[in-house]
């Protein structure tokens, strides 16, 4: 758990420093934060041993609903 947080902290801080230095527009920050927040929350859940149902399962469920798969 702590390792996950540390890794993410290093990644986010180093990238943010670069963004600020290069004066990137705000949308970079927004998209970046969205992606990183998703990754962080999922990895925290995984690290805590509560694996949420994954996109692969959603996709399979959708195909089953349409009837492509049985």
């Amino acid at each position: 758990m702590l390792i996950v947080l540390a890794v993410f902290a290093v990644l986010i801080i180093s990238d943010f420093l670069r963004f600020i230095r290069n004066k990137e527009p705000a949308k970079v920050f927004v998209i970046y934060t969205c992606l990183m927040a998703t990754s962080l929350s999922i990895s925290l859940l995984l690290a805590a041993g509560r694996r949420p149902s994954s996109p692969a399962q959603w996709i399979e469920a959708v195909f089953k609903m349409i009837g492509v798969l049985e």
Binding site: L11, I31, L35, M36, S43, S54, P55, A56
Partner: peptide, 14 residues
């Protein structure tokens, strides 16, 4: 950076 981090997390999660 963000996308490859997400890829790594997704690869474990998926």
């Amino acid at each position: 950076g963000a996308i490859s981090t997400f890829c790594v997390v997704l690869s474990i999660w998926v």
